[in-house]
Design a protein around this nucleic acid. Structure first.
Lengths: 211, 211
DNA sequence: TAGATTGTTAATCGATTAACAATC
DNA sequence: TAGATTGTTAATCGATTAACAATC
């Protein structure tokens, strides 16, 4: 990549992908930035600007071919590759992730869960085995793991995260209610802070109530 | 409120709250915007600008009192109030939310789950009852519900969302992999699109790999 | 060819950072 | 009082929107 693309643009790409997927399901063959903008509630200008960060995928007078653009964005997002994921923390949230078949459609395959709870170790979640946390090193050495999802209490998250980095894991999907201290490390972190999300919702409720 | 506060600022408030909570746990009494900025990896200027949207909570030459600021932000985010939540869709994700005790610390109380699955109806998740979806109307009329969390398949999400709005629900916490079509309705929507998050992670993995 | 719609440049808008006088 | 640090104004930066020539 010659120029860095802003995170603001990246954030919007999955949404484009989602809408194009819906259009595809509805057998829509082509769409203009104007029509798409009306559906998505953004400006047509923004759509064209965003896409042109990656290349000129449209055609004057025609618009964009839905199937083509869907595939292109999928490739941009790396969904044409398989990503192996382990889930560390096999509580409800970890199990929920393991059960979410939808991810596989996008190339994300959960291969194992890890936990310290003896009641969970040895069980399976939709054919995915739950191992003891002490098996983590061995497993990571013998398998190509791309992403580790952290679904464990915040006091354990940081230690496990550092350990995973030492084991060579390159990306962490963090559900723990803490910002991992991994700035110095060469690892990609994507946070899902559910509490933060809920607090924003709460803020907006307050605003509505007192306005 | 006289002036609207930008969503960029709102987005950062829960993070401030989180860091102040940690400082509080560490018995730190006061902190300057400069010291906080170093911990949080943002500029001191931004912290002061953000906070001054809501008022002047600091003191020249002293900084900010941690406990005071923590409480203020909590109140700004509405965490001093109790918010009753119902979870519609009692699958893994719905159960994970119901099991997440942490939310209660911030005033969010899940009072009931709803599902169509006869195997789930009548069971309990941590003392929280699971009702049939046909009991939703009655329940909403007899109880003050502030938020409905939607943890169900996307094809059902839109219908249920509209139904909830008709029942008077003012806020929706949407986990379904779809943007709810509720623009015309007077309802607050907060989306948690896990797939989008995973795709952003995937994009960043690609970038690292080919750079 | 005429109409539609892109890709891209220029203009605007908003958000972030820097600077500093006010003041504890 | 002297030093520290805020609150706030001004400067900069980046992102969004508008406009339009290029072209299918």
């Amino acid at each position: 990549m010659t120029k860095e693309i802003s995170q603001a643009v990246i954030k919007r790409m999955p949404r484009y992908y989602r809408y194009l997927g819906e259009l595809l399901d509805d057998n829509v063959e082509r769409i203009s930035s104007r029509d798409l903008s009306k559906r998505m509630n953004v400006t047509a200008s923004q759509i064209r600007q965003d896409l042109n960060n990656f290349g000129g995928f449209g055609q004057q007078g025609y618009g964009y071919n839905v199937k083509f653009l869907y595939d292109v964005i999928g490739r941009i997002l790396g969904l044409d590759q398989t990503h192996n994921i382990i889930v560390v923390g096999a509580g409800n949230l970890g199990q929920a992730l393991a059960n979410y078949v939808k991810f596989e459609k996008f190339g994300f395959v959960i291969t194992a869960l890890f936990d310290v709870d003896p009641n969970l170790i040895g069980t399976k979640v939709r054919d995915i085995p739950v191992y003891g946390l002490d098996k983590l090193d061995e497993y990571c050495k013998n398998n190509e793991i791309d992403i580790a999802a952290l679904t464990l209490p915040k006091n354990k998250a940081d230690d496990v995260a550092h350990h995973l980095v030492d084991l060579g894991i390159g990306a962490i999907w963090n559900f723990a209610h803490v910002d991992l201290d991994l700035e110095e490390d060469d690892v990609i972190v994507e946070n899902v802070h559910l509490s933060d999300s809920l607090m924003r919702l709460s803020y907006n409720i307050m605003q509505k109530k007192f306005s």
